[in-house]
Computed example of a mutant assay.
Amino acid sequence: MFGISPLGWVHTLGSLPAIPAAAYLFARHGRIVPRSTVGAVYFVSMLIGAVTAFLVAHQLVSYVIGAATLVLLLAGYGVGYLPTLGRAGLYVETICLTLSAFLLMVPTVTETLRRVPDGHPLVTDLNSPLLLGAQATLLGLLVVGLTAQILYLRRQGRAGMAGVVAG
């Protein structure tokens, strides 16, 4: 079905929970919150997806995306344990984890369009306008979303500092 190998299904189904987890966290908190139950689900499913990507990859770009995802995921979850970074750690965490979600969605959208519906996919060429438009939309969402997240974090920091100065 869909031309996916058994290992490909492990990769797909293992990483699938990361999508609703990320969507929930972005909608609820405006960012991926690593120290939460849903954040743990995101981490585990992203880890499964990134590691198994190396086993199912057929193109160099897949290895690059898998490696970048692992680095961003580990950095995003690990930076919270470095108290010396202070508030900058929150920015690093947010940027890394948002980029990891982007790297999840690009191949997800690409592979879905190239496989669905089964036997007659919407996209058969990597230069298809539909595929390029979908990928450009994801890039636009990344730019807008990251900008909004950073501005929100800056406002939170300023509000916290104003409370300290006023108090």
Rank of each mutant, 00 (worst) to 15 (best):
S62Y: 08
Y81C: 03
Y91F: 13
A68H: 07
C96V: 04
S62T: 13
V79A: 15
V79C: 13
A67I: 05
V71M: 08
T84Y: 13
L82C: 10
L85C: 12
T94R: 11
G86F: 04
Y63Q: 06
G78I: 09
A75Q: 11
G76I: 09
Y91W: 13
P83F: 01
G80A: 11
L70A: 06
T94Q: 09
G89L: 10
A67C: 08
I65G: 01
G78V: 10
S62V: 06
G66S: 08
V61A: 09
G78Y: 01
Y77A: 15
R87P: 02
T69S: 12
Y91P: 07
I65F: 13
E93H: 14
G80R: 11
C96D: 02
G80P: 10
A68Q: 05
V79I: 15
E93C: 15
G86E: 01
A68L: 15
G80E: 11
L90N: 04
Y81T: 03
P83T: 00
I95M: 01
Y91D: 10
L90R: 03
I65T: 04
A67R: 07
C96N: 02
V64I: 12
L70H: 03
L74M: 08
L90C: 03
S62H: 14
G86K: 02
Y91N: 14
L70I: 01
Y77I: 14
V64D: 04
S62L: 12
L90F: 01
V92D: 05
G80C: 09
L73Y: 00
I65N: 01
T84S: 15
T84D: 13
V71Y: 04
I95V: 11
T84K: 12
L72M: 06
V92H: 10
L82M: 11
C96S: 09
L82H: 09
G76P: 05
G76S: 03
L85S: 12
V92K: 02
V79K: 10
V61M: 13
L82K: 08
L82G: 05
G76M: 02
G86M: 03
I95P: 00
Y77W: 12
Y91R: 11
E93T: 15
T94W: 10
A75Y: 08
V92Y: 04
V92N: 06
S62I: 09
T84G: 15
V79L: 15
I65E: 03
G66F: 07
G89N: 06
